[in-house]
């Protein structure tokens, strides 16, 4: 239970993907103009992160390490993620066209999202900072991926809310667009600094 809480807190708050690790910034800046699209992107990223971890972690631990081909991890992982995203797109299109309408447009962007490759690389590395003395297994890996994705979604939604409000104000011409978005992100990061004082 302690490990569970530690992982959840670390993934969502203390080591948030956007505000602390700065993974997945492209969609964070690109798709955060409206709350609905930010939430859709966040959920899609979370889904792909969980599925990717579910596939890559066992492949790495039970196939690549015994065969001694860990060094091919980047090629394997990026291929797995790309095919997963393609498959997911096709499946969602078949099963639920309405969901596809809401989420489909974000899926192709996710292949080159560093948050997804980042989480699969993180969970095969040294996780002792998050799970303490517990030994790493697929359950913790997927749990971490899930909550890292939810943490990502949370910050996406906060950001989109702030940017929607920003639309009501006039910004200087040079600051419009990316610069003002980054200054906004700066304030979110500062707010999240508070969580770094949580210790479990």
């Amino acid at each position: 239970m302690g490990t569970f809480i530690a992982i959840v807190l670390a993934a969502v708050l203390t080591n948030n993907f956007i505000t602390v690790k700065t993974y997945g910034i492209c969609p964070f800046l690109g798709v955060s103009k409206k709350t609905s699209s930010a939430a859709g992107m966040g959920i899609a990223v979370t889904l792909v992160m969980v599925l990717a971890t579910l596939v890559t972690y066992p492949i790495y631990t039970y196939v690549m390490v015994p065969l001694g081909i860990e060094f091919l991890e980047i090629i394997f992982f990026i291929f797995i993620i790309a095919s997963l995203v393609q498959m997911l797109e096709k499946i969602i299109q078949k099963i639920s066209p309405s969901l596809y309408g809401a989420m489909g447009i974000y899926l192709p962007l996710i292949t080159t999202n560093c948050a997804v490759l980042g989480v699969t690389e993180l969970v095969i590395g040294d996780m002792s900072a998050y799970i303490g003395d517990a030994s790493m297994n697929i359950g913790w890996a997927v749990l971490y991926a899930l909550f890292a994705g939810l943490g990502f979604t949370l910050v996406m939604i906060i950001m989109s809310g702030m940017r929607e409000k920003l639309n009501y104000y006039k910004t200087a011409k040079a600051l419009a667009g990316f610069p003002i978005a980054m200054v906004t992100a700066c304030f979110i990061c500062m707010a999240f600094t508070v969580f770094s004082y949580i210790s479990i």
């Binding site: 505000t19 602390v20 690790k21 700065t22 200087a172 040079a174 600051l175 990316f178 610069p179 003002i180 978005a181 980054m182 200054v183 992100a185 700066c186 304030f187 990061c189 500062m190 600094t193």
Partner: peptide, 16 residues
């Protein structure tokens, strides 16, 4: 030296 500062400096540099 934290991500917050990185965002700020990056944003201002783009603007300038």
């Amino acid at each position: 030296a934290k991500p917050a500062g990185s965002f700020l400096v990056y944003g201002i540099c783009i603007a300038v």
